[in-house]
Design a binder for these strands. Sequence first.
DNA 1: TTGAAAGCGCTAACAC
DNA 2: GTGTTAGCGCTTTCAA
Lengths: 346, 346
Amino acid sequence: MNESKIIDVANRAKVSVATVSRVLNRSELVSEKTKKRVLEAIQEMNYTPNAMAKNLRSRKTMKIGVVVADIEVSYFAEIIKGIENMANSLDYNVIICDAQNKKQKELEYVSLLQNRTVDGMIFVTPEMTNKELIALVEDGYSVGVIGRNIDHEQIPCAFTDNVKIARDVVNHLIGQGHEKIAFLSGYADAIDSYERLEGYMKALRDAGMPFVPDLIDNGDFNEDGGYLSFMRLREKNDDFTAIFTANDEMALGVYKACKQLSIQVPQQLAIVGVDNIRLTKYIVPRLSTVDQPKYTMGALLTEKLIDQMNNNEFKDKRTFKVESKLLIRESSMFDRNPVKSNEASQ
Amino acid sequence: MNESKIIDVANRAKVSVATVSRVLNRSELVSEKTKKRVLEAIQEMNYTPNAMAKNLRSRKTMKIGVVVADIEVSYFAEIIKGIENMANSLDYNVIICDAQNKKQKELEYVSLLQNRTVDGMIFVTPEMTNKELIALVEDGYSVGVIGRNIDHEQIPCAFTDNVKIARDVVNHLIGQGHEKIAFLSGYADAIDSYERLEGYMKALRDAGMPFVPDLIDNGDFNEDGGYLSFMRLREKNDDFTAIFTANDEMALGVYKACKQLSIQVPQQLAIVGVDNIRLTKYIVPRLSTVDQPKYTMGALLTEKLIDQMNNNEFKDKRTFKVESKLLIRESSMFDRNPVKSNEASQ
DNA sequence: TTGAAAGCGCTAACAC
DNA sequence: GTGTTAGCGCTTTCAA
């Protein structure tokens, strides 16, 4: 165990602790000669600064927490990579908090912010409400959000245009000749669900198609929820020929149901999801979906949040609206002579 | 921001800081009446203890770090869940360190141990060598390992019997009538690779089958590596009818190659992987694999490590060898009249 | 350019 | 059962 402390290094180098601290943190204030002596002492003693003491004194931890709904879902994993790489490059460490889809856990993780274990926190979860997040910020904590846009001066946000995503998808399905298109929403109260529903309705309206409430149901953003929701949908109305699910996980549930019910995809039912999770390229038929630049959202938001925490504000933008891209694959492309799509391999 | 500190609470409750500290940490030492007053004060002031100060003074952080090779791979994600749930139940927090398959990053994360950001660290990565890990422990740090067995008194380990895994797989393939079975290894120097190779050879020997070096190649535990390795294998020797890949990711690479080369699975080539990652159930044909109780390994090891860090040693076992289970699915089961396997849905 | 010394907020002897 | 107080190891004024 490394038991040596700054005073030991100071003694060995025949300087004061202040000087050692300076070469560690603000070495430009120390003469070359002294610096060299101190560095040697550090080396010889294999000294490592105690982060706890340093954090306490400097009132910073150089850590940010990231609360995700479920670490296993690749949508989150990729965002985390973006966050982590950017944070590391700015000398911050990242604490990943896996809420395992439990709101209770998310709330517990908030205490890491409150007890100063982390300097700031990024939420990538639909569970925390805008109100709760705003309350945290008003309390003085640094918070960033990925996946939605919260209208608050001090909350950096990275997100995609959900309305546009939904419109793109529905327009694509209409273009394929579908006239009855179902929509499988996430949690009814999640902002994503709401915005995607809005885009769905707008696209229908633009095409002069009727809006049928029976063609809509709420899942809960995961596979089982998608399965159950699809089954409910069929009870209400079973003549739709296409379905748009608010995320890929729910689309997997629809695949499962289709298999059980011997429904051919895409011949009898076209399916399109959102997120472009890894699985979508491996299932058969491959799932059409919407790719969100997840890594980019994570990186941009992190850069902004850290900048804000340090009061630099050199990035004047608070929000980052990134472009999503519809990826048309076999699940929604019924064509006996399929052309090679330029997006087929993405 | 919560600016109140323990002295403020003490003043408000008309007690000393020591008493406040006691109700916070060892409340059995405080009278009911006093405790109630203190708790009220805490509530009223919305006080949260400063973790940095607490950590510094108590020389504990109540955090453990987990270094994984790649957070996106579901094999790691599930282990993390096991670690996290056990740790949380013992009042520890978990810092996940995603090495993104870079050894350099893993080394950087070791500094979190050295600077006391975490009390202990769990390595779930083939990259760190036994030697490096032992050096850390000899230096006085608390370290646990998942995925292999390091023969050192102070390193708790959770792992499966890799030799048995390989034997089970190869025996299954032999049982299916295969006589030329290829083996796609991971990194040549990873302990997993070595042990699985050993099991592969033993199974062949037991069956009186020849060992053909040309039927072996080294991938690197990921999809692309599996693809490339399979291609090399075919150059050397293309008459094998079955292939055992040291993990599922590499099997995915083989699937890709088979698709390109129009090789039918399992009719022309049977494939079996290891890990039972989520994807294996979604690809077509579903991949036969070996399930390791990942969640259990994470949980058991964490319990032991934390116990050891606190010098309780109430768990006398240092190593946890958990049972793996061969899951036979369509990728290795060529049968025109397939029976419903009891494991088919796992 | 360097050193002395005052804390950061908390825990845990030790005293009562 | 409760209070007093000395640090935990570090950074940062302030003075030299």
